[in-house]
């Protein structure tokens, strides 16, 4: 007989006990904004659903000197409203604020968005640009870290084993770095990214780039870190010419990634506008043609 059983652990100890007997019919339920649609579409009617939302100890945003730490069941609304995230991980604040609608952000969790591994997942792009790692717990009670990039395999596939759950996201704090996120969808709100991008820049007092990270999402099965674009920006001074160079290199990267696809002509133009939006938000002085300082 087909049967669904829901288990709602309230402590990590209880979670580990449940994970210890997890099998191929075990499903993790966090915010549910993707899973419940999938459950109904695929008519999942057999197995165990582990409801993670009662693990109140995983609902937090805090920071040490070196890391911002976000508990696995923290909602996207809580993250987008966090002063800690705003201060140390701006790209993530911007990304979480642009996911879905108010209702979706009130339910969806950061760990859930990573594990769902949609190619257009906004938080994944931002987290990769912030060099974030996730902390995982398994059915043996072991806790270890993995890069977000290593979790997401693409097209709703992740590398998590059946007995693994993301319990925390760790973002390194770098006070010399600035980050930002942007997306383009078919409308301004409640939209799925047709293209998204997150950047982290480190630059000196003369506004010359020392380090860059450029992550592009919704352009393939998973977001990717474009070292080609990042390297082209090194040792360049941030000014209007810089934006032009940035857009040109991004366009070449899009050509390389999706040449021949139906979306290519649109995305090679859209990436320029996206870069422009991000740069003008990070360096608004450029809009008026003024000098940066």
């Amino acid at each position: 007989m087909n049967e669904i059983v829901i288990k709602s652990p309230t402590t990590l100890k209880e979670l580990v006990q449940i994970l210890a007997v997890a099998d191929n019919n075990t499903y993790m339920l966090s915010g549910g904004t993707d899973f419940i649609i999938k459950m109904r579409r695929e008519k999942i009617n057999n197995g165990t659903i582990i409801n993670l939302k009662d693990l109140k100890e995983l609902n937090y945003i805090t920071n040490t000197e070196d890391y911002v730490k976000i508990g696995g069941i923290t909602t996207l609304t809580e993250i987008s409203c966090s002063s800690i995230v705003d201060k140390y991980a701006t790209a993530l604040k911007e990304a979480t604020g642009k996911v879905g609608s108010t209702q979706i952000r009130n339910a969806a969790t950061l760990a859930g968005n990573i594990a769902n591994s949609a190619p257009c997942a906004d938080t994944v792009t931002a987290l990769m640009a912030l060099s974030a790692k996730v902390k995982i717990i398994n059915g043996s009670g072991e806790i270890y870290e993995k890069k977000v990039d290593d979790i997401v395999l693409g097209s709703e596939k992740n590398s998590l084993k059946r007995d693994e759950v993301i319990i925390e996201v760790n973002i390194p704090i770098d006070l010399e770095a600035r980050s930002s996120f942007g997306k383009i969808g078919s409308r301004t709100a409640v939209t799925i990214s047709k293209l998204n991008m997150a950047v982290t820049f480190k630059y000196n007092h003369e506004m010359v780039i020392n380090e860059a990270m450029v992550v592009i999402g919704a352009i393939g099965p998973k977001a990717f870190n474009s070292s080609t674009v990042a390297n082209s920006l090194l040792n360049k001074k941030i000014n209007t010419q810089f934006i032009y160079l940035f857009e040109e290199t991004l366009q070449k990267q899009v050509d390389e990634a999706i040449l021949g696809r139906a979306s290519h002509p649109y995305k090679r133009e859209a990436i320029r506008g996206l870069a422009d939006d991000i740069m003008k938000r990070m360096f608004p002085q450029i809009m008026t043609g003024g000098e940066l300082s």
Binding site: G32, T33, I36, S101, T102, Q103
Partner: peptide, 24 residues
Amino acid sequence: GECGACTIILDGVAINSCIVLAAQ
């Protein structure tokens, strides 16, 4: 969870009741 016709308030915040399991 796209149209909002099922919106209710759960623990003080608006959510779509069509994409929340009753158990949650």
